[in-house]
């Protein structure tokens, strides 16, 4: 019993900041799931009489220029943050993993694919995303694709490097010499051994997706303006910051804490992973 308790409390005491970060992320998830129960007001309920109210009373975090409740919008913003993060990570993994693994298995194909990844990486990341937004148009889904494209490249590179090393492992060679097919080697040896570097990569991608989405929102090229995302809230508050600085504080703090928590968790995962691959997963 005490031992089980120790296993639970031990890591928390060893890295208190990371534990706080993980707790905050849990809070974000709960907030996103139960947003309608937590938010005291609908996120888009306009109340012109009570516009730009400072925090306090019925409005915990004040109100914006339409009299909308900032706290409610921040809670609903967690939904979008999660959607963007999960979407970008899913896209980056679903595209980057096959590209990386195929490149490692088939060197000829790999030269072409990795060359294409290099070309995409020669574009500064935000410009790549903006270019895709111009082609696809504005929207939440398109923002996910645009940011996902940035992390397709880094994910493919990391997967390629890890897969190349795994392919040379004696047990993979042994499996091959016993007649194992490519599919067997990939599903039994390469992919399972890739889980920990991929988890590290996923947590960093999740973190940077928040910053990327916020930047797109701020430029007016991300989520449509009526969507209560933290980035949109900051963009709207811009002209009111001298009169209502709380509009700048809360959504920004949410973005920072979310990204910071994810970075902490990512660092923790990296410290725990196989040291042979640690140097490959750099931000």
């Amino acid at each position: 019993m005490i031992r089980q308790l120790h296993a639970l409390v031990g890591p928390v005491l060893a890295r208190p900041l990371t534990a706080l970060g993980a707790a905050f992320l849990m809070l974000i998830v709960l907030g996103a799931v139960f947003a309608p129960l937590i938010a005291p007001f609908p996120p888009d309920a306009i109340d012109p009489v009570n516009r730009l109210l400072p925090p306090g009373g019925a409005h915990l975090m004040g109100t914006d220029h339409f009299g909308r409740d900032t706290f409610s919008r921040v809670v609903y913003g967690a939904r979008l943050a999660l959607l963007i993060g999960v979407g970008v990570v899913a896209f980056a993994l679903a595209s980057g993993v096959p590209i990386g693994v195929l490149s490692a298995l088939y060197p000829r194909l790999g030269r072409v694919l990795m060359r294409m990844v290099d070309v995409l990486m020669s574009f500064p990341s935000l410009l790549l995303a903006l270019g895709l937004i111009v082609i696809l148009g504005q929207g939440v889904f398109n923002a996910i694709l645009a940011i996902g494209l940035i992390y397709l490249t880094t994910t493919a590179r990391i997967v390629y490097g890890v897969a190349l090393r795994l392919r040379a492992e004696p047990y993979v060679e042994a499996a091959r010499s016993m007649g194992a097919g490519t599919w067997w080697v990939v599903t039994r040896h390469i992919l399972p051994n890739m889980i920990s570097p991929l988890m590290v990569q996923a947590s960093f991608v999740f973190a940077f997706a928040q910053l990327g989405a916020a930047a797109l929102d701020f430029l007016g090229l991300g989520a449509p303006p009526d969507v209560p995302s933290w980035g949109n809230m900051l963009a709207e508050s811009r002209i009111y910051i001298t009169r209502a600085s709380w509009l700048l504080l809360w959504p920004g703090l949410m973005i920072v804490l979310t990204a910071f928590s994810l970075n902490l968790v990512g660092d923790w995962l990296r410290d725990r992973m196989d040291p042979r691959f640690r140097d490959m997963v750099r931000k």
Binding site: A215, F218, L234, G252, V256, A259, L262, K283
Partner: peptide, 10 residues
């Protein structure tokens, strides 16, 4: 690490 998690525009 905190600075790396802050949006520049903020």
């Amino acid at each position: 690490m905190l600075l790396a998690s802050v949006p520049t525009f903020w």
